[in-house]
Amino acid sequence: MFAAIARRISLSFLILILVSLFVFLATEVLPGDALDVSLTDDDLAVLTPEQLAEMRAELGLDRPAAVRYLSWLSGALVGDFGNTIITRAPVADIIMGPLRNSILLALATTAVAIPVAHFIGILAAYWRDRAPDTIVSTSAIVGYSIPEFVSGNALILIFAIWLPIFPATIVLYTDGPILEMLAVSILPVATIVIGSIAYLSRLLRLGLVEALVSDYVERARLAGVSEWRVVFTHAVPASLVPTLNAAALYVAGLLSGIVVVEKVFAYPGLGLELINAVLKREVPVVQATVFLGAVGVLLMNLLADLSIIALDPRVRRSAGRG
């Protein structure tokens, strides 16, 4: 069991290093260095070559790429992403607040989506091909098909403009108190949750339908085990095993949805920060946010893998299997 866990963690770590290399290379292959990218034509017209060389030396851009990568990586692993090019402020300080807000948004979304998706998925699977299933499955397809920028704007139109209950855009500062952040994030959360619930409940339904027609469920039923126990102790945990990996991939894919939603609601999170950094050509901030995004994806997958290890005793023993 420990071997299986150690294997997953060491693999995740390896992938993280590869991702960091990729992020670094992606910004490295652009023509010019971080300084050239961030300076405007006007700046370049004013600055003398000596001043430019000085700035380069100050930013460490005159060192060979390999050295820069290693120093960036060793910093990134302990949370130091260097300084921004324009203001020379530590990147870590800039992204700390947005990171917290994005995690908050993700946690709030998960806290709503997972239980609701389970409830709906179980309902649909248990009454397969009957009225509850038809209703759920049809609305799920609709919910899943609407892109976030449409549902987000629709929610704003309904709940912020026609019925002014919630704010249309968020005017809080990046480091607003957590409770206030939560209070204003109801519409953004709702926007992401619609698609997530639709997708996750379909996924769960599929897994559970399969588990409910399995031999072990039939044996338990024929032994007189109560229907409640059959569903919740036999079938549901079994159905989670095939569902979890797909769910982790989906939640990872949600990151892009979060970027869109943060933009729509002007929510001060990592996604908004990324968009602004790209517009300002702040390469170190872009690197840091993309790197943190990758960490998020890896963590989600690791979490799914570890949950499967916890749920499925067969995986614990056979560490060699994929």
């Binding site: 399995s214 031999d215 072990y216 469920v217 039939e218 044996r219 338990a220 024929l222 032994a223 102790t233 036999h234 945990p237 079994a238 095993v241 749920l311 499925d312 005793p313 067969r314």
Partner: peptide
Amino acid sequence: IAMVPQNPLSSLTFHM
């Protein structure tokens, strides 16, 4: 009245 089903390999819940 009790049943011993066909396939012992798949008749027990794998995670219990």
